[in-house]
Amino acid sequence: MNRLLAQYPQQVKDILAKYPPEHKRSAVMPLLYLAQGDKMHITRQDLTDVGEICGMTETEVESIVGFYTLYHEEPGGKFRIQVCTDLPCALRGAEEFYAGLCERLGVEDGGTTEDGLITVEQVKCLAACHRAPMLQVQSGHGLDYHENLTVDLAMEIIDGLRQAARTEKKEAQA
């Protein structure tokens, strides 16, 4: 059974409607985002499901996952904190900011916190050079920018994410 078709029939239909019917393959990227939403990584079953919808082999779908950095093949935190340390941000202290953030979280570069919620990583330019230091939070619900940061401000954002995760878990249990 195709999980995406079963779980998200309307979303799949809306995605396919954006492209000419004879070019279903164009839907592979939005479908991968849809598949990744729940667990924040792409599983083997996702490759099959996405491939079935847009007429691609699993290998072809996997080549897309491997090429683009916002798709994740390995499980990580529920939230991915991606800090830009590219040249314009680095000129404004982003490398020190990133090191400070890792220290406060008690993780190495690219690591995940003990509670399994937060993965931190360095990324390339995010088009926010004038508001460095900055980071984006990638989650199953999308992406959000946070700009003009200090380590303290970033920790407040992360505390907010942890709080949201706890609330979500409680609601799921209830």
Partner: peptide, 10 residues
């Protein structure tokens, strides 16, 4: 007009 999102590739 339709939007299409990339996924991280300069």
């Amino acid at each position: 007009i339709y939007t299409h999102l990339g996924a991280g590739a300069y």
